[in-house]
Design a protein around this nucleic acid. Structure first.
Length: 268
DNA sequence: CTGAATACCTGACGGC
DNA sequence: TGCCGTCAGGTATTCA
C-alpha cells in the first residue's frame, strides 16, 4: 500500500490515539516471513512497555517504547498491503491479522497484512532508515545522490538506500511535475533538472500528506479512513487518459520492473 | 561496488 | 458461474 505520505498519515494517527498508554498484552501470528525479529522477542520487549511516540522514518512506522526505564523501538513496515489499525476489541479481528497490542486505554493496535510483504521487528534505540529523508534533504545532498548513476531516474527514486520513502506513485508524480522523462539516466540530469525534481517531490509529498495520502485500492489510515490524494494524480494509473496540462494521452511503460506513467509531451 | 531480474504472497478484475 | 492471466502502493536476494 504505502509510501511516505500514507505511512506518515498512519503513524500520526496511531500516535494521537495511543501515546502514553501501556501495552498490556501482545499477540502474534506464526507466519515466519512477517517477523524480522522472532515473535518471542517482540512480545518480551513490548509487553508492559509504555508507548512514548509513534512516528515515521522512510516507509517504516517507528514506535518508541520504554520498559523498565529501557528504551526500545518497534518497527512496522507495511509492505504492499499492510495496515496498522487502532480498533475497539469488540470489532471482529480481520483476516490476515499478524499482530495485536492490547492497550491500557481499552483499544487494540492491529497489524493486518494479506500479502505478507510487511515486516515487524525490534530496534535497539535510534533507527535511521536506509537512506536520506526526501522532505529535509538539502539541494547539494540531493544532487550528490544521483551523480554518476547510470540507472533511469525513476529507478533511482525508488532506491531506498538513496532516498527512503518514495514509491511508485510519488516517483511518477514528481517526475511529471518536474517535466522529466522516467527513463533519463540519473547521472546525466542537469543541476537545474535535479533542482526542479527535488522541489516537485517535496511539494507532491507535502500535498499528499495534507490530504491523508492516496487510497488506490484499499489503503486506510489508523481509523480505517481512506485518503484523497488519488484525486490529484496527474499520471499514476491514468494510462490513455488526457494529460491535465496538454491533453496528450498518458503513456504506460515499464522501468526498473515497475509500471511507470508519464506524459510524452510535458516530460522531456 | 552497481544494476537488473526474480522471488515472495493474496486478492481484485477482465476476458472467455 | 468459474477459470485463467494480469496486475497491485515493496524489498531482499541472487546473478552478471
Amino acid at each position: 500500500m504505502p509510501e511516505l505520505p500514507e505511512v506518515e498519515t498512519v503513524a500520526n494517527g496511531v500516535h494521537e490515539r495511543t501515546h502514553g498508554q501501556t501495552i498490556r498484552a501482545v499477540w502474534t501470528s506464526n507466519k515466519p516471513q512477517t517477523f524480522k525479529t522472532p515473535p518471542d522477542q517482540i512480545i518480551e520487549t513490548l509487553t508492559n512497555s509504555r508507548i512514548e511516540r509513534v512516528h515515521r522514518v522512510g516507509k517504516t512506522i517507528v514506535m518508541d517504547v520504554i520498559r523498565n526505564k529501557k528504551p526500545a523501538q518497534f518497527l512496522i513496515h507495511l509492505g504492499m498491503s499492510g495496515r496498522l489499525l487502532v480498533s475497539d476489541p469488540k470489532v471482529p479481528v480481520p483476516a490476515h491479522t499478524h499482530g495485536i497490542l492490547t492497550l491500557s486505554g481499552g483499544r487494540e493496535i492491529r497489524f493486518v497484512d494479506p500479502r505478507r510483504f510487511g515486516r515487524l521487528s525490534i530496534a535497539e534505540s535510534t533507527y535511521e532508515g536506509p537512506g536520506k529523508e526526501p522532505l529535509t534533504i538539502s539541494l547539494k545532498d540531493f544532487i550528490a545522490l544521483f551523480r554518476n548513476r547510470k540507472t533511469p531516474i525513476k529507478a533511482a527514486l525508488l532506491n531506498q538506500s538513496l532516498l527512503h520513502g518514495v514509491g511508485n506513485i510519488y516517483a511518477d508524480e514528481s517526475l511529471f511535475r518536474a517535466g522529466i522523462r522516467p527513463r533519463r539516466q540519473a547521472g546525466r540530469l542537469t543541476h537545474a533538472d535535479l533542482g526542479r525534481l527535488r522541489t516537485a517531490l517535496i511539494d507532491v509529498l507535502k500535498h499528499a500528506i495534507k490530504l491523508g495520502g492516496s487510497s488506490v485500492s484499499d489503503y486506510v489510515d489508523a481509523e480505517g479512513i481512506a485518503g484523497f490524494f488519488q484525486l490529484h494524480h496527474n499520471v499514476y494509473s491514468r494510462t490513455g487518459e488526457p494529460c491535465r496540462v496538454c491533453k496528450t494521452a498518458i503513456e504506460r511503460i515499464v522501468v526498473g520492473g515497475r509500471s511507470t506513467h508519464f506524459c510524452p509531451h510535458c516530460q522531456k
